[in-house]
Amino acid sequence: MAIFSSSKFFRSTGRALGWLLLALSLGAPAQAAKDPFEYQVKATFLFNFLQFVEWPATATQPGAPYIIAVAGEPAYLEAIAAVVNGERIGDRPILVRPWAAQTRCHLLFVSDQAPVPSSGWPQTVHDQPILLVGETADFCANGGMIGFIYDQGRVRFEINAPAAAAVGLKLSSKLQRLGRAVTTRKGD
């Protein structure tokens, strides 16, 4: 193309590539970040999950807030907070907290950046009526209850209904219909 042969184009292209190299050198040490949209979408899934799970009466009090705990990336905490900010389920507000061992919560979301406890996440919340949601591979097969997966660029989820039932959580039929059924891998 005649335009490509113009010196102006090559000069400009060279400048742009120079900027790129500079930017790459500046950004190289940084850790790759997830896309904000992924945080937002998954945060919205969590908001939806709350509406399709029934907790045992011992875990709920009328008017008391639903608590979502987040283990791992603070960005998830911010994204989830932005999604549930001001929202209520029935008469119950929703709070978001960073995860700590003593955190009481209804839903624990484990990001793939969260350090895995030596006993594994299912054991960490063992026997508590906490909906355990994660995004690492085989999260449900390893005892989690809902695990995000990807299918051609879309966020989908696996469901381990027996694991939820074991701690008294009832997953709605809609949730079970939309999720891909998985059970805990034997030996885990």
Binding site: F37, E38, Q40, V41, T44, Y150, G153
Partner: peptide, 29 residues
């Protein structure tokens, strides 16, 4: 990807599942 959280909340689970996202290993939208 730029849908605001306030808009995302309007989506049903089925619709959320149809959104295409950037993932650590997959696609660009």
């Amino acid at each position: 990807a730029s849908v605001a959280p306030t808009n995302l909340k309007r989506l049903s689970l089925e619709e959320l599942m149809e959104l295409k996202v950037v993932t650590a290993t997959q696609t660009a939208a």
